[in-house]
Amino acid sequence: MLPADPTQRLTLQRRIQEGDLVIAYERHDHMKAIKVTKGSILQNRFGVFNHSHWVGKPFGSKVFSNKNGFIYLLAPTPELWTLVLSHRTQILYIADISFVVMYLEIVPGCLVLESGTGSGSLTTSLARAIAPSGRVCTFDFHEQRAASAREDFEMTGVSSLVTVGVRDIQGEGFPDEFSGKADAVFLDLPQPWLAIPSAGKMLKPDGVICSFSPCIEQVQRSCETLKLKFTDIRTFEILLRTYEVKELSTEVGEVDEGISFRSPPRKKRQHSTATGKDSVATTVMAKPCSEARGHTGYLTFARLKCLA
């Protein structure tokens, strides 16, 4: 029996069915979202993979091609979906998303308002956070983007938790039906200060707002508007630094000038008295990735003032 929470189906060890969305994983930086269709194939550098062979296998399975190459079939969790979705706009990535969910204090049962929807990267994570009884109401002024987002939410299994509306929140504000009912509001707009007064009317007492802006000038103007009805105003910039880990084989006395990092050797070097030569040692090394993602934007949070 499937769980009441539709987002839990993405991570349970259930069997892949025809029509499911799977993430074909080659390596951590090379993945692809695929809809399973009997009779269809996936062809890549590892060979040809038949979709029909995937049906009935549990998510996480390792499947082989006609050339004995392999990939993994993973469930489309919000984390993986963020890495493979179609970019209709600039998106939020995992570091920013996790911070937003925590600081907006989003828990199951919350009502969250979002503008704009964009590519839906954050929306998918918000849906999982508020499941099974909450709701995410997201708005985008661009009708085609909103329609594409609805299709994506249907594919990823969160459509029952998300309502997508077409509306210019900067010009019209949020619909009055949400007045005083929202637990949290998220804004990703070019002029967020225009939507902040409406967001304040939507929030419950002590509710939290977050605005994402790529430029510090947007942050400054937003903060000036937030001061009127909000308190505890804070801005953060999330910088994620990743490391690559490699195994290196060296001989005693050999020095690689290109390596600027050190770690204890996994195997000790040994000297052979028979040959008079040093044996090869394997060492695990770690260093920062040369192409680390830098600045994405600023996250400004504020809490609605409670009137005595």
Rank of each mutant, 00 (worst) to 15 (best):
E79M: 12
E79D: 15
E79Y: 12
E79F: 14
E79W: 12
L80W: 13
W81Y: 10
W81L: 11
T82G: 05
L83T: 13
L83K: 14
V84P: 11
S86N: 14
H87E: 08
H87Q: 14
H87T: 06
R88K: 13
T89A: 12
T89L: 06
Q90D: 04
I91H: 11
L92T: 13
L92M: 14
Y93R: 11
Y93C: 08
I97D: 03
F99M: 13
F99P: 00
F99Q: 08
V100G: 02
V100H: 00
V101H: 03
V101F: 06
M102Y: 00
L104M: 12
E105C: 12
E105S: 14
I106A: 07
V107E: 05
V107T: 13
P108R: 04
C110V: 10
C110Y: 04
L111A: 05
L111I: 14
L111K: 02
L111C: 06
L111H: 00
V112K: 01
V112G: 02
V112N: 01
V112Y: 01
L113S: 04
L113I: 08
E114L: 01
S115T: 07
S115D: 03
G116K: 05
T117N: 06
T117L: 03
T117G: 07
S119Q: 04
S119G: 11
S119V: 10
S119I: 08
G120M: 08
S121I: 08
L122Q: 09
L122K: 07
L122C: 10
L122T: 11
L122W: 04
L122N: 07
T123I: 12
T124F: 03
T124S: 15
S125V: 09
S125K: 05
L126V: 13
L126H: 03
A127P: 06
A127V: 08
A127N: 04
R128M: 09
A129N: 01
A129C: 04
I130R: 03
I130N: 02
I130L: 13
G134S: 07
V136P: 01
C137E: 10
T138Y: 03
